[in-house]
Design a protein around this nucleic acid. Structure first.
Ligand SMILES: [Zn+2]
Ligand SMILES: [Zn+2]
Ligand SMILES: [Zn+2]
Ligand SMILES: [Zn+2]
Lengths: 170, 170
DNA sequence: TGAATATAATAAGCAAGCTTACGATTATTC
DNA sequence: GAATAATCGTAAGCTTGCTTATTATATTCA
């Protein structure tokens, strides 16, 4: 029961419109610090700022949108600066790349391991993106792949649709 | 048994290195003609040529690669020309877009209905791409999505890994 | 045949994503 | 404290993906 609560709390499938986003952001930044310390990686100001920019919403941002976001609070960074930070954050499992959008999303589920597959739920109305743990389907997916002798490594699973909140609003 | 043969022939999960690709291409073009006729759509020369370019390999090609391919046998087409053809071919289920590559792939499984989800197996060694029918996993995937109230519409499932042939070659 | 529609060619351009090159700055390490 | 490595800033540029606008060519059909 405790385990169940912990899991459902730790892995919200989709960001609820009324969640405490300040807390949500603070937690993510704290988590990032922790991860970097554990791995002896440097969570430098620019890396923090890029992550913070992504955390400002639960929407994936293109690299140039990140630049625009940062430009609000500092001298406009060059693309390379942002790409370097994004590479770092992705390498450490703090940011996901949404392939179908060429965009980047701050990881909101700090408990899946960095290498494991994640599926994304992308709402076509509000643009918010949720993560669902791969456990529930990766097995079947990988089995289907392996049935033809294919050795799966990395899975991109991105589901577009309408989130619960936007359905009600319609 | 007959049904089984038909299905495995019609839905090869991954293009075998020794398959009769000439036949494979001819079949696909014939199928395209058929589909267009049934739908009263025009399978014009440029559309045919773009499809043929994509069929030249089982690799996804970017729009500019398609242009390069066409340039070999005709005056270099403008981007817009190719994009129009690609849009047409996608709308009629003859071509898939591989989101994680910003590239286009000729559909090699002429029997899945145009709207249903498909998963792709992308070999990171040889670059070939196979399709697997969604049936085997779409159910679980959609169920996982719906469990959080999300109404899934379109799924992008792209699995990178190593194909059977490249595993042997290694 | 002539109007309406669909398709294609021509020309130009924009925006996004990403990279290369190089010098400056900061940490680490010996 | 000098050498090394990691990080960052600056400047420039490349490629790809895709669009807009306009004119021309077929097709369809009344
Ligand atoms: Zn939040
Ligand atoms: Zn929504
Ligand atoms: Zn083939
Ligand atoms: Zn291969």
């Amino acid at each position: 029961m405790l385990e169940y609560r912990r899991m459902t709390l730790a892995k919200p499938a989709f960001p609820a419109p009324d969640h405490d986003h300040g807390r949500c952001t603070a937690d993510a930044l704290a988590h990032a610090e922790e991860v970097c310390e554990q791995r002896a990686q440097k969570f430098t100001p620019i890396r923090r700022q890029v992550l913070a920019a992504l955390l400002s919403s639960h929407r994936p941002l293109g690299a140039y949108e990140v630049i625009d976001e940062l430009a609000k609070s500092m001298p406009r960074p060059a693309p390379i600066t942002v790409y370097r930070a994004l590479d770092f954050l992705m390498a450490n499992g703090l940011v996901h790349r949404i392939e179908s959008r060429n965009a980047y999303l701050a990881c909101a589920a700090h408990d899946h391991d960095a290498t494991s597959a994640v599926a994304f739920l992308i709402c076509e109305r509000c643009g918010l993106v949720g993560e669902i743990p791969s456990a529930s389907f990766a097995k079947d997916l990988n089995a289907a792949a392996r049935s033809s002798g294919f050795a799966p490594k990395l899975s991109v699973v991105e589901i577009t649709g309408v989130c619960a909140h936007c359905q009600k609003a319609a």
